[in-house]
Design a protein around this nucleic acid. Structure first.
Lengths: 341, 341
DNA sequence: TCGTCTTTCGCAAACGTTTGCAACGTTCCA
DNA sequence: TGGAACGTTGCAAACGTTTGCGAAAGACGA
């Protein structure tokens, strides 16, 4: 009991120093494993710290060192207010980021942001709370991102990097090429009137649309793809897709979905109407999430290597934190041929 | 230019104070919107701060106030090392938690933990980095959680709360009742030899299994459910389920999956073998994730109200942070009848 | 024996904020 | 006119850590 009371009394480095009969500075150095302290006293102090399960106060340490050990991961939900962070793509990405960051001794602070005020990014980077920030998805906030990136270095975004004179470092896949892949596959399946399910405010999605359009033009098809706004929010997606198919279902013979989740929902709606996939209507997805493999039929999709993407983002961020420069990287997408198209 | 240089010079509250011709203390109070400062000077200072886009250093503030404004959300991956945080259930939960916490002005620090050392939780709660911690899933770490919860109050876990003399606050659904619901549904569909796909190390899953067993016993079926270890890691799940069905596929006439993701995979494997669902083999899932609705056929599943769960967790945590006591809550699951069983 | 070098440690000044307390200037009432 | 009361502000001490600098003590060669 008495010992417990004594134990719980060790709250600061000074307490421990008193107990060990040394100065606070020495304790600090010992705990940090610095070589400037005698190995013997270092071990003694570390043992003492372990015994009292003492851990130095992080806030004080961070204030002093001006280093937080925290990386902010922010998901801007520019449009898509209902998205609720549940989009599997974001989540998978987040998982890989968490893995990689923890591995390197960083903590991950998650912010799901609805950019209502224009200074949402400034508020984050200037709070002094993190050593760097990772943006998952640029949404429709490219301007804001550009503005901040111009003065705040440790910032890396997932998305497209082909803006002329782009200031911010982005890693992503070539969405135009990816869209083209999807379009070509549908055309090879005999589709001529292709619908694109997705909304174009996010640049990545717009580029996928353009890729599909390019493929169609290259094949000599005069009509551009029929673009149909479809949110990523899963709770209204079924209704949206249903509505779209009600309207244009008769006119189209192929569907390019902006994401696997949309493709999955589309499969569902098509199944309801007895439309056979891929025979009556080929469908191709985008992302290659695990669920694409579990769907019935298996979704033919354009694969983004999320694991590698996360890795590239973190590497670039670390280089930028270290003061080096890190260029954007654009990875090639690849078509995964399965059963839906 | 000159103005820019001057602007960027405002880094501390003292800088701003000098500019405003007041003392740092006053600036601090003004920025905090305290009523102790003259409304006029308060506005003036706030305007000045906005103009120079000054934000007080969070670390210093936190050190001084002993309040971090950060809630730790930790996902222990006790077994399931490969899970990679990508499980949709966790992710959906995480999304709701992020919403609710941001709403209340808290930041969310995410830790994906593989509990190798026994003091992983201690390290987190004693780091002094957060005001409270939320545990998503108890995994097989109940002992550790209990030990820490006994002395660290602001801790709330998602999971079961029926441990005798349980010290930690848990919110979750009644998994035994949920399992029973699943079992009863399968039995009503004519199933007698039921397989349970999931591994029992996590208490929630074990209880679901027990629920199924109870339902079968109540129906006078002598054989307990056939339990088949199935990880939540999506990359090996297909192989696992395939293996299971190879072995026992002929002996069973109903499947209770421990989660919707497992159910989806099962549907996929069954489709490959031409086994019709639900006619030849009813399948019921667990969770009621959005994907359950998109699957073909739509998955009959036991619904957990994740949104409400997240809400209850946060509410309980806030009460505990405030020093009040908050009891565990157990929510009733409900069967969502769809097409797979 | 002395001086120099090396190792190890203590001292004290930061890091940037918040806040109790005291001081100041007004106002208002007796 | 004195002083009590009030509303604002400044002063300075924390919060708990890290780290540059210098001092003490021993080692070693001359």
């Amino acid at each position: 009991m008495e010992q417990d009371a004594q134990k719980s009394r060790v709250r600061t480095i000074a307490d421990l120093a008193r107990l060990a009969g040394v100065s606070p500075g020495t304790v600090s150095r010992a705990l940090a494993g610095k070589s400037l302290v005698n190995a013997e006293t270092r071990d003694r102090i570390q043992a003492l710290a372990a015994e009292h399960s003492f851990r130095p106060n992080q806030m004080a340490s961070r204030l002093r060192t001006q280093r937080t050990g925290v990386i902010g991961v922010v998901v801007p939900l520019g449009h898509e207010r209902r998205q609720h962070l549940s989009d599997p793509f974001f989540m998978t990405m987040l998982g890989f980021l968490a893995d990689r960051l923890t591995e390197d001794g960083y903590d991950l602070m998650l912010s799901r942001i609805i950019p209502d005020a224009t200074d949402w990014l400034e508020r984050i980077v200037d709070s002094g709370m993190m050593d760097g920030v990772l943006l998952i998805g640029q949404s429709d906030q490219v301007d804001t991102i550009e503005r901040v990136a111009r003065r705040y270095r440790p910032l890396v975004a997932w998305g497209s990097s082909d803006l002329p004179g782009q200031a911010h470092c982005a890693v992503g896949t070539d969405n135009i090429a990816g869209g083209r892949l999807a379009g070509e596959r549908l055309i090879a399946r005999g589709a001529r009137r292709i619908a694109f399910l997705g909304e174009l405010r996010a640049p990545e999605i717009r580029q996928r649309y353009e890729g599909v359009a390019t493929a169609m033009a290259a094949a000599g098809i005069e009509h551009p793809p029929i673009q149909l706004d479809t949110h990523l929010a899963s709770d209204i997606m079924v209704q949206e897709v249903t509505g779209h198919l009600d309207r244009v279902g008769g006119e189209i013979d192929g569907i390019a979905a902006a994401s696997d989740v949309i493709a999955l929902t589309t499969l569902r709606v098509l199944a309801d109407r007895g439309i056979r996939v891929p025979d009556d209507m080929p469908v191709v997805g985008y992302d290659d999430l695990p669920l694409a493999l579990s769907a019935v039929p298996r979704i033919t999709t354009v694969r983004q290597d999320i694991a590698r993407g996360a890795d590239e983002m973190v590497s670039a961020l670390f280089r930028r934190i270290a003061g080096e420069d890190a260029p954007s990287v654009m990875m090639p997408p690849v078509l995964v041929e399965r059963d839906s198209a």
